[in-house]
């Protein structure tokens, strides 16, 4: 049995960022998208993003649906709320290959994961655990009061995963 301590709930839409100083349970559903859950154990400030593509190429709005925008923006918000950058830890989830791609070229999920790892390394933020890749979607439940993340693997129901 898992232990959820926070009462406040939030469903994170794709292309959004959630950072809050108060304990919350943040839920999202991931296909090839990637979510990074960040947590500062000292201040207990937690944050989560949900990006769909690795790089913003200058087209449309510079929205956090692109990892290169979503990751720095989330860290910025954490620091603005009082988190200590040196203490922030990260967990990476998602990036699965939900659509069967026959080509050997790197799929979106894989590129999303690589971006998360590279950018976090650049920012010197340790990745303390992750559950990435594979062929199924995931439902993520993140309790920001403890930094615990619960992952439920979804069966091969691509229709269920609307946020690919």
């Amino acid at each position: 049995m898992i232990d959820i301590k926070s009462d406040k709930q939030h469903f994170l839409m794709s292309g959004s960022i959630f950072v809050h100083g108060k304990p919350c349970v943040v839920t999202t559903v991931l296909g090839s998208c990637v979510s990074i859950c960040v947590w500062d154990p000292l201040t207990k400030i937690g944050g989560m993003n949900h990006y769909m593509l690795p790089f913003w190429n200058g087209e449309g709005l510079a929205s956090p649906k692109y990892g290169s925008i979503a990751i720095p923006k989330m860290l910025e918000k954490m620091i603005r709320l009082g988190a200590n950058k040196k203490g922030i830890q990260a967990k990476i989830f998602g990036g699965s290959e939900v659509l069967r791609v026959t080509s050997s070229a790197m799929n979106i999920g894989e590129r999303n994961i690589m971006l998360a790892q590279d950018m976090l390394q650049e920012e010197k933020i340790p990745v303390i655990s992750s559950d990435v890749g594979g062929k199924t979607g995931r439902k993520i439940i993140y309790d920001t009061s403890t930094g615990n993340v619960f992952v439920k693997k979804l069966a091969n129901q691509i229709d269920d995963i609307r946020n690919v």
């Binding site: 898992i2 469903f11 992750s130 559950d131 439902k139 615990n148 619960f150 992952v151």
Partner: peptide, 23 residues
């Protein structure tokens, strides 16, 4: 409405957390 369908209430705990892993 995801907030309505994704309600983490005590009644739905069993369904939502069945087969979850902790990270």
């Amino acid at each position: 409405d995801p907030e309505m369908t994704e309600d983490i209430s005590e009644d739905s705990n069993e369904y939502i957390f069945k087969g979850t892993q902790q990270f």
